[in-house]
C-alpha cells in the first residue's frame, strides 16, 4: 500500500517533468518566421562584409541596429546571386520598396538602455560575446516569441544565459567591476 503510494507520487513527478521540459517550451513560445532567410555567412564570405559595414554607428555613437532597406538596396537593386531567398527579397521588398519587418532577437524592454558603442569601442567586446555565431550563420533561426512576455526565447549566441536577461548583463558587469548604478542600463 505504502509502495503503491510512492508510485503515484513518482508518476506525478514524471508527468510534471515531461510536461515542464518537453511540453512547456512548445506551449509558451510561438514560432514566427523572419521575412527573409538572411545568410550572414554569404555576406561575410562573398561580399567580404564585416559586422559594422551594415550594422553601423553614426558620428555620435548611435547604433543603427538591423539596417534599413535602403542599405540592402544599395547592392541588391537587382539580383546578385541565384538563391530563392534573394529573389524573394528583391521581388517582395526591394522592388516595391517595402521595409521588411525583421524580428529582432535581441529586442529589449522599453526601460532598458543599451549602448553598442560603449561595449564595442570602450569595452572592446567582440560581437560574438553576446551574439554568438550569428555573424557566421547560414540561416536565420526561427523567432520563438514568448507568448506572455513577448520577447525572443534567446538572442542566438553563446551568451551566458539563453535569453539576454538582466542577470546576464549583471554577471559580466560584476566580473569587470563596472556595476555602478541602475540607471547605467535603465532609462
Amino acid at each position: 500500500m505504502k509502495f503503491r503510494g510512492i508510485i503515484v507520487f513518482v508518476a506525478g513527478v514524471l508527468v510534471a517533468l515531461g510536461a515542464g521540459w518537453a511540453g512547456f517550451p512548445r506551449v509558451i513560445h510561438q514560432t514566427r518566421r523572419q521575412p527573409v532567410d538572411f545568410s550572414h555567412q554569404i555576406h561575410a564570405d562573398k561580399a567580404g562584409s564585416k559586422c559594422d559595414d551594415c550594422h553601423t554607428f553614426d558620428a555620435v555613437g548611435r547604433f543603427s541596429g538591423v539596417p534599413e532597406l535602403e542599405k540592402c538596396s544599395g547592392c541588391h537593386a537587382a539580383l546578385m546571386g541565384s538563391t530563392a531567398e534573394e529573389k524573394k527579397f528583391v521581388d517582395q521588398y526591394v522592388t516595391p520598396n517595402r521595409e521588411p519587418e525583421w524580428l529582432v532577437y535581441a529586442r529589449q524592454p522599453e526601460n532598458v538602455y543599451f549602448s553598442h558603442i560603449t561595449h564595442v569601442k570602450r569595452g572592446n567586446l567582440k560581437c560574438e560575446k553576446c551574439h554568438g555565431d550569428h555573424g557566421t550563420s547560414n540561416h536565420l533561426r526561427p523567432y520563438q516569441e514568448d507568448r506572455i512576455s513577448g520577447y525572443s526565447r534567446d538572442i542566438w549566441g553563446t551568451a551566458t544565459r539563453p535569453a539576454m536577461t538582466m542577470d546576464a548583463c549583471v554577471d559580466c558587469h560584476r566580473q569587470s567591476h563596472l556595476e555602478h548604478s541602475c540607471l547605467d542600463c535603465h532609462k
Binding site: 503515484v8 506525478g12 508527468v15 510534471a16 515542464g20
Partner: peptide, 9 residues
C-alpha cells in the same frame, strides 16, 4: 499524492 508529485516535479 499525484498532485503533490507533480508540484514537486
Amino acid at each position: 499524492k499525484f498532485a503533490g508529485g507533480a508540484v514537486a516535479g
